[in-house]
Design a protein around this nucleic acid. Sequence first.
RNA 1: GGCCCUAUCGUCUAGGGGUUAGGACACCAGGUUUUCAUCCUGGCAGCCGGGGUUCGAAUCCCCGUAGGGCUACCA
Length: 479
Amino acid sequence: MRLRFAPSPTGNLHIGTLRAALFNWLYAKANGGTFVLRIEDTDLERSDAQYETNIVDGLDWLGLTIDEGPTQGGDYGSYRQSERIKAGVYDEKAKKLLASGHAYYCFLTPEDIEKEKASAIKKGIPYVHSRRSSDMSEEDVNDALASGKPYAIRFKMMSDREITFKDLVRGDISFDCSLLSDFVLVKSDGTPSYNFAVVVDDAAMAITHVIRGEDHISNMPRQLAIYEALSLQAPQFGHLPMILGPDKSKLSKRHGATAITEYRDRGFLSEAFLNYLALLGWSPTGEQEILSPDELIKQFSLDRVHKSGAVFDVQKLTWMNGQYLRKLSVDVLYSLVMRYVSADFSQIMQGYDLKKQHLAVAAIQDNLDVLSDAMSYLEVFFERDSAYLDLVKDQAFTADQCLVLKTFLELLEQSDADSMDDYNALLDAVCKKLDLGKGKVFKPIRLALTGRGSGPNIGALLAFFEDDVISKRLGDCLD
RNA sequence: GGCCCUAUCGUCUAGGGGUUAGGACACCAGGUUUUCAUCCUGGCAGCCGGGGUUCGAAUCCCCGUAGGGCUACCA
């Protein structure tokens, strides 16, 4: 079983494309198949090596390991269409089609075709290419060729046929060929068109299953016709539902961040992202939604792929990311967090004991949805005194609250509290001594210590700050 | 316009002739917690419409409607 992911490097890897890659990968892994990457860069104008890098980076981030591709090679190379053009792969097949009468030279200019189209629209009839050039005599064709007239090679669509195929996710789909134009196989610049190139390459690379977006369904009759004309065995096809933006149209740049590297940079975990994406258009048998890559592979099957489009919901992605973040060990979370705080902040943090740093990170673990939020939650621990002073200067403390601060300070002086537990015990003692509820006690202490009304667990806060800092801050509030 | 695909809570989805139509996100309410959160409990909320078929349709069929895709010498 051989699956392929065949993006064109005309832009960054985005969600829809990636989801296709993911499903191919899952299907390949689930069945012990091979996952190949083929770069479809026949559009010389728009293709760019930088995008190929972005695509590979994205796959890499998510752990979608490639078995054969431009960088890892394989027995079916080259894995870049631009290189295959140079190798003459497509020319050979085009000649074959020309020779067998399935294709012909077309000398019509784009303007000619525009005219045909306009007149069809005017008459209110569906446009079908006139295939005028296919009637030319061999002599005329040779003359035109010899005179250097620009030409394209078109496929001669059999007009009185119906083409049917069994889609792996949708079942039988059929098309009336009489409605289909003779389409271009080879463009006038000599490069193959998409429909031609995919067929030639999927066949040459012995691809057995093609899983791609629903937007490719209408290409099926053209591609199937080429397989037939070339007497090639067609793979099986499965078309995935589209991923939609909030407005239900195909997800695109105008829906915001679509380059998947942006999600990485915002602090989504690759496993969470993968998990969420897998649930878009596919569902497992049970009700468990949090699934590791291995579990996904184990459970994946094409017959549980949904048929209708799915709206990409950042909120749920974010929730899922939080779930993954919460399961991380402090060590791992810490090293992750350090990659998402600014260089300055990281330097400040590293001025503290590693133990303290871990304490702070552990204290914010339950707050985190995305790693890029970490810094703002961590601020309270590592900010400069001036920032703290700025916040606390507007805080007014009532006499009762001052009593709480004073009592706490007294107890603190007599204790040798060190851990979170110790400080919590101290806090309890204050409550008991003053006969006050926790709210009445904790609030003024938090306020005095951080200048904020909310934040991490106060035990963690107290354990983090040195006793002299606590004394100073609380003491100053009493004045 | 033509062709193709699709239609269950706001969103992701389960369920494919007999179910109190299940779960998750979001939202709301309660609880835990010193707070924002996390966590726990509960709630709100759905089968696009109309015709068939059937003893019985969310489920099967047809027709509408709506959405999406394609209609390139882009992929």
